[in-house]
Design a protein around this nucleic acid. Structure first.
Lengths: 213, 213
DNA sequence: CATAAAAAAGGACATTTGTCTCGGCGAGAA
DNA sequence: TTCTCGCCGAGACAAATGTCCTTTTTTATG
């Protein structure tokens, strides 16, 4: 859910040290700042060094869908560089974010020159396909309540906590539905519905739920 | 919706001609036959030469979700080979399907040896991410009726016609909901709801709808 | 052609979800 | 302190969806 790719990050950091000439820069972004706007043409790719950002599609009906949360070592803009297309997502910083900004021609030439880089990239793209497909299936075929429970577990595992708006956008539901489901989940946790009770008793999840009241 | 990749196909056909030693074989499968079962370990990848198959996830609650329909030149099993994991989807032939069966070590060594092949593969993976993400967002945030209309248009464009079961599994809904939405769509097409009427008047879509009654 | 068996369609009801709206609560200003 | 503004949660209602079961249609067989 929060993707990271430390291989990517260490590769790039090494590459930067060895190729200071390639005008790769390191930039910082405030929480909320949009690194990338859907529909824009860009000529850089970004690799996140620190912080968390969200990648989301804004549909024409005004609703947003969060594709993924991106952490350390995740890359952004690579699809646009590979396929020479306009940006298909927005990317916004959630926390303070620091990222390497790499001109797309440098990125593309890296693919030509470095087998190691290509391997890392292939792994990254494969992971994305797997995660995106698995999640699409899961969210279409299970109840919201169950998806919410899983989302809380993921946050607990990764020690992050998202805003309600972001969680709703990730689940593809309205905040109203989110609140309703959360309430039901808490009720079931207090009753004796074994499956839910056990899951909700985990210390980390309890904290999260408490924060949400 | 029906993915194809002619670059992939022509690359592989050329490669086969030039490397008959690599024990690549060509196999045919009956409609309904499962080339790949979710959870299996496989040591081949498949590249479709002819026919259409579907790639779908079976969830533990008994429901299926169709990830994509695969046509000429599409590859299957490559994620499993790249990441050394068990199969995450089922793949079943819808029509009569002919496919090249390629041992995974041949596939992996091609990535090492051929820049051209790697480029094609990167393009393919990128396309998958784009399509999967876009569709997940669309299906979560729009009404079923609208998604159904779009699905009919896609079928008309690509001159294929799917079973109701498959369409429902692609949309992530029950057949009951599918029937209901189809009926509503047809009613709106007969009334004067401009947007829908125009879309449904297209000759190809009319044929499709007629077949579904 | 008639009949039985199987498959598909659709009605009824319960549940889920979205939209709209109102009311409570807290932060900041007068 | 009190007032106001804005945000957040939840009630009420309508729409959408799933499940179950009956009805209709199709297919197969004698």
């Amino acid at each position: 859910m929060l993707r990271t790719n430390l291989d990517f990050l260490s590769f790039i950091e090494r590459f930067c040290r060895e190729n200071e000439s390639e005008n790769i820069s390191l930039k910082s972004f405030r929480p909320g700042y949009r690194l990338i706007e859907q529909g824009d043409k860009i000529s850089n790719i970004y690799i996140i060094k620190e912080g968390i950002s969200k990648c989301f599609i804004s549909e024409e009906n005004g609703k947003d869908f969060i594709i993924e949360f991106l952490g350390k070592g995740e890359v952004v803009g690579e699809l646009e560089a590979l396929k020479k297309i306009d940006c298909l997502c927005n990317v916004a910083a959630i926390s303070e974010v620091t990222a390497y900004v790499i001109p797309d021609h440098v990125f593309l030439s890296l693919i030509q020159k470095s087998g190691e880089f290509t391997t890392i990239l292939l792994q990254e793209l494969s992971t994305r396909i797997i995660q995106t497909s698995t999640r699409a299936s899961f969210q279409q075929l299970y109840t919201v309540e169950y998806a919410l429970l899983k989302l809380l577990q993921l946050q607990a595992n990764e020690s992050i906590s998202l805003s309600k708006d972001d969680m709703a956008a990730y689940l593809g539901i309205s905040v109203r539905s989110f609140n309703r489901s959360l309430k039901q989940l808490i009720e079931k946790g207090n009753q004796d519905t074994p499956e839910f009770k056990n899951m909700l008793q985990t210390a980390n999840i309890k904290k999260l739920v408490d924060r949400l009241k």
